[in-house]
Design a protein around this nucleic acid. Structure first.
Length: 510
RNA sequence: CGGGGCGUAGCGCAGUCUGGUAGCGCACUUGGUUCGGGACCAAGGAGUCGCAGGUUCAAAUCCUGUCGCCCCGACCA
């Protein structure tokens, strides 16, 4: 590090090059790194801890709504996947296929031998393999509903990958349920959408729009797909979670049938819903700044990081003892239903370096504690939602008593900031000209020119024609992110002059 | 799969046009001075220059092939 100190801990900044900034934040916060396996990443402890917190909270929410966890095979026989036509078509192009079950050494190289009679597909999603089980489990209406969730990895062989947003393998949860009636399945679909929205807003401090996908954006095989959509800091939309009403498409494909009270046989109504490690990408792109990651306090792996200031070796023991005692007392406090997560960074590393490391990692609260603080019985606090140098002394007892409140203040501040960004970059647009001007034309051919930050969410009427949506996607790279569930006024589609039931959200997306 | 770029120390890069046997910054190690702070000085460790052929007295550099990665499209959570 030279004397000419960088203004920011991350270069480039968001404004300079948003894409590179994103990757730099991941690196600086030590969340993940690229693996030597094409399109796959290694999730490092700090990133994985974020995911574990997401898992813990979501899992609690799933259980509270009556779901139970189970686990199904990684491999799906080709014939099973073939059963639902739209589903196959949707995923066929991105499947990893296992064709052999043995390796043989030939000329010092290992070559696959022992070809499988039927290829196995590495699950891109588990509707078909779970449907197989459901068909066996369901005989009577008394066996319904089946409310199952699976925490798993899935593989989708994507052409282009981006850490956390799109990798060949990713971690997620997938809920799969089967119901006796259509209404019950529809209710389940909406319930889980609400769970996702609540998780995003309350836990991730991520404001989302709940809505329905257009036909073109629907999950392959679904009757209806619902989603939560969030705005990132470059004003692009990110689909943060999806909930699908599958009708009887998959139950017919898998033979999930039951006998009702009257003795008739019907197919079950199924749903599926998923949320992935992509949410870590959402966290980065929503809250982080030019100094690195900003963790929403409720999900932060460590909520309070104590950095002992040890100038002379002789004070070391005293300072560390004070810090450890403080940690203990803080851990006796609870925030968002769990003991406050506190870490004492006692490494033999220069203090200033530690401070910047924890800023880049996004720890919500930093405490720098040395002999002077001990003397005054106070703590020197920095908050990640404020500037790095904006630090102040707080009486120790007061800090402990208010730590939960302070964390919630940060949580709220992050949510409000994200909400304001979305509000500032959402516009009602009623003419084709304004719409086209709002969005950047397709990126220039200049490879060194990072995509500029333009546009945002356009709330514009739409007659629902898939061809029109395709045309706009072609022209601008903009699609309908969702048809909001929230009530809206009817109007006129500015592209066709035809009537439109309500405004829909148009944006560029990840 | 189309267009562009790049593989040289852990990371970021220079050197390639004009072949002469590898360098810079950061990081790391050690010693010292500093220090409520992203410090400074000194010494040090670390690279068969992506891989395979070829040309040459001599290849990171030229030629051929090959593998991989990144970016921009098409596709997508």
């Amino acid at each position: 590090m030279t004397n000419a100190k960088a203004e920011t801990a991350i270069t480039p900044t968001r404004a300079e090059n948003y894409q590179d900034w994103y990757l730099e934040v991941i690196k600086a916060a030590d969340l993940a790194e690229n693996s030597t396996v094409r399109g796959c990443m290694v999730i490092k402890p700090w990133g994985y801890a974020l995911w574990e917190n997401m898992q813990r909270v979501l899992d609690g929410m799933f259980k509270a709504t009556g779901h139970v966890n189970a686990y199904f095979p990684l491999f799906i026989p080709l014939s099973l996947l073939e059963k639902e036509a739209a589903h196959v078509e949707g995923f066929a192009k991105e499947c990893a296929v296992v064709t052999h079950h043995r390796l043989e050494a030939r000329d010092g190289k290992l070559v696959p031998v022992g070809e499988l009679e039927e290829p196995l597909i590495v699950r891109p999603t588990s509707e078909t393999i779970i449907g197989e089980s459901f068909a066996k489990w369901v005989q009577s209406y008394r066996d319904l509903p089946l409310l199952i969730n699976q925490w798993a990895n899935v593989v989708r062989w994507e052409m282009r990958t981006r850490m956390f947003l799109r990798t060949a393998e990713f971690l997620w949860q997938e809920g799969h349920t089967a119901h006796a009636t259509e209404q019950e399945a529809v209710d389940e679909t909406m319930q889980m959408l609400c769970v996702y929205a609540e998780f995003a807003e309350q836990w991730m401090a991520l404001p989302v729009i709940q809505g329905e996908k257009t036909e073109g954006e629907r999950f392959p095989g679904a009757v209806k797909t619902y989603c939560i959509e969030a705005m990132m800091q470059d004003h692009k939309a990110l689909q943060a979670g999806t909930s699908h009403f599958l009708g009887q498409n998959f139950s017919k494909a898998s033979g999930i049938q039951f006998q009702d009270a009257a003795g008739g046989v019907s197919h079950a109504w199924t749903t599926s819903w998923g949320l992935s490690t992509r949410m870590i990408g959402a966290t980065i792109m929503t809250h982080s700044d030019d100094d690195g990651l900003v963790c929403p306090p409720r999900l932060a792996p460590q909520q309070v990081v104590i950095i002992p200031v040890i100038q002379k070796p002789e004070v070391r023991e005293q300072v560390l003892a004070y810090c450890n005692q403080l940690k203990k007392e803080l851990e006796a406090q609870t925030y968002a239903g769990t003991p406050v997560r506190v870490h004492v960074d006692a490494r033999d590393v220069q203090g200033s370096k530690k401070v910047w490391e924890w800023i880049k990692k996004g720890a919500p609260i930093r405490l720098e504690i040395g002999p002077k603080d001990i003397e005054k019985d106070s703590v020197f606090m920095g908050r990640r939602d404020k500037k790095p140098k904006e630090k102040a002394g707080v009486p120790r007892a007061q800090f402990i008593a208010t730590v939960a409140t302070t964390l919630q203040e940060i949580q709220d501040a992050l949510f409000q900031r994200a909400l304001a960004l979305r509000a500032d970059n959402t516009r009602n647009i009623d003419s084709k000209e304004e719409f086209y001007a709002y969005f950047t034309p397709p990126p220039t051919k200049n490879v060194n020119d990072p995509t500029p930050i333009h546009g945002g969410f356009a709330m514009t009427h739409f007659n629902g024609d898939p061809k029109l949506e395709a045309q706009i996607k072609d022209d601008l790279g903009v699609t309908v992110r969702c048809i909001p569930l929230e009530a809206g006024e009817p109007g006129t589609c500015p592209f066709t002059g035809q009537p439109s039931p309500k405004r829909v959200v148009w944006a560029k997306s990840y």
